[in-house]
């Protein structure tokens, strides 16, 4: 049973993630009054990359790309197996860490700047991610997803502010504008793709696929706030992601100072307010 779930996750997640990326690109194009690429474009891209030559600056750089993929897969599997949320966040950290280390190991200024900026991004979103998990703990009394799913309340009703904070850092985590400064998207070329600049061909494909897994994981995470009702959850995820695309298109790049300040001061503040009230509600 577990094996089947694991296999299904590993096989299905990239398909879903890729489709989401395809829809993302079409919607983005429509918002810009363009026709946009075909829905399957992300798959074409990745397949093309897989068939290309793998050139690199150092010999172990591709290793980190693979690590990034493997850890993302493991994290998603852990999520689907309904394990401990804190543990899942730590595994997610491991995944990002391997990407950062890969960028640092290639001794290239652009990728190093990307790595530093990604680290700042971690610094910005990690407290909020952990706070959301802790908020869920205050409501449900457990860090494990299987127990959180047994609660028949909608977590969102208890944790609305945390959900807002979470969607805010989701933009950072998905590396979307205005916070796309560690791997700039096409169009924004001042960092020529930052973190991933020194990757090419198959190793770049690994990173792309890993990003699909990551997207699925984060959206599932967002769905956890609405877990007791499947339809609401799916609708919430859809709205959430649409909002991300919208923001991605209408926002100009911000500086990392603004990101750090906005997540640490108002972001953490509303997270804390929310945590305090659920704590009082359920524990005092």
């Amino acid at each position: 049973m577990n094996i089947q779930i694991i296999a299904a996750t590993i096989l299905l997640a990239p398909v879903i993630g890729g489709l989401i990326a395809g829809i993302d690109r079409i919607i983005t194009a429509r918002m810009q009054h363009r026709v946009g690429p075909p829905l399957l474009q992300p798959f074409y891209d990745v397949l093309k990359l897989l068939g290309k030559e793998n050139i690199a600056v150092t010999n172990d750089q591709s290793l980190y790309a693979v690590l990034y993929l493997v850890f993302n897969v493991i994290t998603l599997v852990m999520f689907v197996l309904q394990m401990d949320l804190l543990l899942i966040l730590f595994m997610l950290l491991l995944a990002v860490a391997s990407l950062v280390l890969g960028a640092m190991s290639a001794n290239s200024p652009f990728s190093k700047i990307g790595a530093q900026r990604e680290l700042i991004a971690i610094l910005a979103y990690e407290p909020i991610l952990i706070s959301s998990v802790v908020g869920m703990y205050f409501v449900t009394g457990s860090f494990s997803i299987s127990r959180i799913l047994q609660i028949d309340r909608m977590l969102f009703i208890d944790l609305p502010l945390l959900f807002i904070a979470f969607t805010y850092v989701l933009t950072i985590k998905l590396r979307k504008s205005p916070f796309d400064f560690s791997t700039s998207h096409h169009g924004h070329q001042e960092l020529v793709k930052g973190l991933t600049i020194e990757y090419s061909g198959p190793s770049l494909a690994m990173i792309e696929i890993a990003h699909w897994y990551e997207t699925v994981l984060l959206l599932l995470f967002a769905g956890l706030f609405f877990a007791n009702n499947l339809y609401v959850a799916v609708a919430a995820i859809a709205i959430c992601y649409f909002a991300e695309i919208l923001v991605d298109n209408i926002a100009a790049r911000l500086t990392w100072q603004i990101m750090l300040k906005s997540t640490w001061i108002p972001g953490l503040l509303i997270a804390v307010v929310n945590m305090v009230w659920v704590y009082i509600k359920y524990h005092v």
């Binding site: 690109r25 363009r34 075909p38 290309k52 050139i55 096409h186 169009g187």
Partner: peptide, 21 residues
């Protein structure tokens, strides 16, 4: 630009030789 929209053919301007075809 929207007028020609070369992304219809999957073309992206990546600005980086290591990613480009």
């Amino acid at each position: 630009t929207p007028l020609y929209d070369v992304e219809r053919f999957g073309v992206l301007n990546v600005g980086n030789p290591k990613h480009a075809d």
